[in-house]
Nucleic acid binder design. Sequence first.
DNA 1: ATGGTCGGCAACCGA
Length: 255
Amino acid sequence: MKVASFNVNSLRARLPIVLAWLAEYQPNILCVQETKVQDDDFPIEAFDETEYRYVFKGQKSYNGVAIFSRSEITNVKSGFDDEPKDEARLIKAEINGVNIVNTYIPQGYLPDSQKFAYKLNWFGRLLAFFEKNFKPTDPVLWVGDLNVAPQPIDVYDPVNLLGHVCFHPEVHKALENVVQWGFVDVFRMHCKEAGQYTFWDYRLRNSFQCNLGWRLDHIMATRSLAEKSTDCYIDKQPRLAERPSDHTPIIAEFE
DNA sequence: ATGGTCGGCAACCGA
């Protein structure tokens, strides 16, 4: 089983890239974030021509998550139970007995801002979500753009970037609290190398060419599932396409 | 050199 996560930065703008990527990599499951499309305008026709089924929850302009799957998708639910639900940031489903939780976690703007406090709180709400819906012994995959680079080897300049909203001690603690519930970082389990990134800022000149990146997109698995993972890797091919996203897909393979 | 990127969507906001 092949599972992937990809922040597409607009599904409609990236539609040919996503379709070509699905055709080439043939994952069983693809989770996407930042679809930036409200549900009425989701490009269902394009995906109805593929073998993929899909579920999605979006809103106008911002956020938006979707899951594509070659197998039946059941038990779909978006958002938290309490307010604000953030439906366009969290979608959960069950596929072949595996629970998929696809998240687009708030970026946080600046460390002093309300948005950063909201981000930190979001991890707490997510932990409560896992505690309520699953047991750590269940097969759960938590994937998506988590907007956190967990370790110094996950950012291009750990000294100067320390304190950034995506590389901040409080965010590291918030992430760790959720991971401690029962997750294994599947990419890190298979690759200990520094400089393996999934995001390069558009605003930095030549950030991709110079590999000035961040590892913000993750595939987390509960222990029983992680033990079945055979490989995990980051795909940089879409950056070479006509219209690259600032993120690139991460793929995990399971027995 | 007083700049430099995207996408959505129609003036800026978010990343």
